[in-house]
């Protein structure tokens, strides 16, 4: 099949038809901020709202994860309008994130820190007051610790658990109360979770971490 030619930030790349912009960019080493993108997933999740880019000729920014590549498309990853939406989503995520990097096992290996560093954002909720969920940490499992107060709800753990393993994790509740949980909120240690820890490996922040 003929490959599609496009440019991202002036750099010429090619991609298979049907590829999403974000996947095409990342595979060519062009980094676009993201937290919820899973290369092998059938459909993008589209929940973190961080991968905003501007497409030449279009008024509104689009999320790169959900926009298929098009022949001759010219993309800017750091335009002002895209930056505004990205920073807004970033600040909103931080306003619900227990920011305690020093004591976080994912310190220096964290998706939020990476975005802040590479985009030049302060690691702060900006305009918003921080209000963390204040939920209990679940350390009932012998191999995994789950801290919902650090979770950004990117859904990666749900995907990996449901497509590869027992399907113990899922979203529950609505609105601000939405969270990752087990059936009937049972502690992880009391579920059929076998402890494969793929959720830990895929978690971009310090919400699911290895128990030492």
């Amino acid at each position: 099949m003929k490959r599609i030619k496009l440019t991202i930030d002036g750099k010429k790349i090619t991609a298979r038809p049907g590829t999403m912009l974000l996947a095409a960019a990342l595979s060519r080493g062009i980094w676009i901020p993201n937290l919820c993108f899973i290369p092998e997933a059938e459909l993008p999740f589209g929940g973190c709202r961080l991968c905003w880019v501007e497409v030449e000729g279009e008024k509104d920014p689009v999320t790169a994860c959900s926009r298929p590549v098009r022949e001759g498309m010219a993309v800017r990853t750091r335009g002002q309008r895209a930056e505004r939406l990205r920073k807004s989503a970033f600040e909103l995520l931080l306003s619900r994130h227990h920011l305690d990097c020093r004591n976080c096992p994912k310190n220096k290996n964290c998706g939020l820190q990476e975005i802040a560093g590479r985009c030049g954002y302060p690691l702060k909720p900006g305009r918003f007051a921080r209000e963390i969920p204040g939920l209990p940490v679940d350390d009932s499992h012998p191999k995994i610790i789950y801290d919902p107060n650090r979770c950004v709800l990117c859904g990666k753990c749900v995907w990996v658990c449901q497509t590869k393993r027992e399907g113990v994790l899922d979203f529950s509740r609505r609105g601000l109360a939405c969270r990752i949980s087990t059936f009937a909120d049972r502690p992880l240690g009391e579920t059929r979770c076998g402890g494969c820890r793929q959720c830990v490996d895929i978690c971009p922040v310090g919400a699911l971490v290895r128990k030492k």
Binding site: F45, C48, L92, A129, L153, F171, G175
Partner: peptide, 21 residues
Amino acid sequence: IQKESCGKCAPCRIGTYQMLK
């Protein structure tokens, strides 16, 4: 809306909450 948001994306889940405050 805030109560009925599915919680998937940050602007709707948290943004509407900040507006509501």
